[in-house]
Amino acid sequence: MILNMRIGVFKVKKLFILGVCLIGCVVIGGFILFGVNQQTQTHSDKQQHAKQSGHNKFVSSQTPTLFLHGYAGSANSEKFMVNEAKDKGVTKHIIKAYVSRDGEVQLKGKWTKDAINPIVQIELENNKQGYLDVNANWIKNVLTTLQSKYNIKKFNFVGHSMGNLSFATYMMTYGNDPSLPKLNKQVNIAGTFNGVLNMNEKVNEISVDANGKPSRMNPPYPRLRKIQEIYKGQHIDVLNIYGDLQDGTHSDGRVSNSSSKSLKYLLGNSPQSYRESKYEGPNAQHSQLHENSEVANDIIKFLWER
């Protein structure tokens, strides 16, 4: 009987200890779950705060921004800059405009009727087209397609390398056409306005004065000087970005700083504002400029920051 009582007490103690352990596990587990939930909620709150901050930081405009690559480029040339804008909360509406060799425009993707700060990545099938008048017409075709589908009134433009020269030709040819959307802001990256090294310019051969006037004007620069009149009174803001490798060539390796900076003389005092941004070192190389996070930030601030 005493043995049975001892066994009973042992069982009670065992059950008591097991119960205490189970309660402890439940309590500890509850604290762990609470902590995880709090961390998740905090992370979610931070994400929401960042999203709201980004939304408040940028303008809420329905004006689209067109990105155009340079000679032998593609939409991939614009990808980094566009993704930077998307990641920072500028927009979530991005489409591509493919231009065939015949100039036909096909839009890939779509944005909603109330899209904020939409972006259009232009890709030319014939990306080695050297006739600037043809390129200018293709830019017009993109704009009229967007105008027909989305009824756009204004647009921003970001160009790299020869894309800027093509756009300058567009403005010279169509910039005064009242039936077309109006240019709002323009970003030029490594513009080839007065030549390309080892094509029609030698290293350190041409210089520009304080007004951007080149010591020698290469075609089609003289012909483009009429765009000064076209920009006058249209309240256009211009950002001109160029790179200097700091290797003594005063260039980004392909385009001289004098060629890029000669845009200032082309436009004169006609833009509402004009600013130059110089980048230096290996990341300022011609093709690296459109992969440069500082350049992307400069563009984002200029185009969309309040």
Rank of each mutant, 00 (worst) to 15 (best):
Q272V: 09
R223L: 15
V208C: 04
N269F: 03
G163W: 01
D252S: 12
E201Q: 10
S251H: 03
E229D: 10
E229F: 09
R254I: 15
N218R: 11
D252C: 06
Y221D: 03
N218S: 14
H235Y: 13
D247C: 09
E201C: 07
N257T: 09
Y242D: 08
G268W: 00
I236V: 12
L197Q: 01
Q246E: 08
P181H: 03
P214E: 05
N204D: 14
R275T: 09
G163F: 04
M217Y: 05
V203E: 15
D244H: 06
V203H: 10
Q186Y: 15
S259H: 05
L197S: 01
L245W: 07
R216G: 13
S258K: 01
K202Y: 12
K213L: 10
R223A: 14
L263V: 10
I241D: 02
Q234R: 11
D209S: 15
N257G: 07
E229C: 03
V196R: 08
T192Q: 13
A190G: 11
D177I: 04
Q234F: 05
S270C: 08
I227D: 00
N198T: 11
S166M: 15
K202S: 11
N184W: 01
D244K: 03
Y170R: 02
R275L: 14
K264E: 12
P214C: 07
K202C: 05
S251G: 08
M162T: 07
P220G: 14
S262A: 12
A190T: 04
S273R: 07
E229T: 10
S161R: 01
E201T: 15
S259I: 04
N188C: 12
G253A: 02
Y242E: 07
K264V: 04
N240T: 06
K213N: 13
A168C: 15
S258M: 02
L165P: 02
R223Q: 14
L180E: 01
G175V: 00
Q228A: 09
S262N: 07
I230K: 06
V238G: 04
V196W: 03
L224V: 03
V187G: 00
S166A: 10
G233S: 09
A210S: 09
M171R: 06
T192L: 05
P220I: 13
P214R: 05
R216I: 15
Y231I: 03
S207G: 10
N184C: 05
Q246V: 10
Y170E: 01
Q186D: 10
L224R: 00
L183Q: 00
K232T: 14
I227Q: 00
Q246P: 07
L263E: 02
S262V: 08
D252A: 07
Q228N: 08
S262L: 05
L263P: 00
M162H: 06
M162F: 13
N257D: 09
N176Q: 10
S251T: 15
S161L: 02
M171D: 09
L224G: 00
E205M: 09
N240H: 06
T169E: 07
P271Q: 08
P178R: 12
M172S: 11
N211C: 13
Y242A: 09
G233Y: 07
S259E: 04
S270Q: 04
S207Y: 11
